[in-house]
Amino acid sequence: MLQLTINGQPQHFDKPLNVQQLLECMSLQNKRIAVERNGEIVPRSQFAVQALSDGDRLEIVVAVGGG
């Protein structure tokens, strides 16, 4: 059981995941996104390496139109 907070919303997963696997679960793999984990940037090269821990807080962002 893995409990994460993703973009402020609580999410439950029933197996251990790394960042890459999480993005696949969310259909966000290969999208133009950036990830922050507990306040630290997760470089793309680390997605498949960083295992997520219970209680992790993640932010997943995209570019949108803005001034």
Binding site: M26, S27, K31, R32, V61, V62, A63, V64, G65, G67
Partner: peptide, 29 residues
């Protein structure tokens, strides 16, 4: 200029992305 915002979770995964419309190869973002 562009803004950075939280992505929608679990909503339309095929939503077009601003960076596909205005690629960094053509503009300085």
């Amino acid at each position: 200029t562009i803004a950075i915002r939280r992505t929608n979770i679990g909503q339309n995964p095929n939503e077009p992305n601003l960076l596909d419309v205005l690629p960094p190869s053509q503009y300085t973002l």
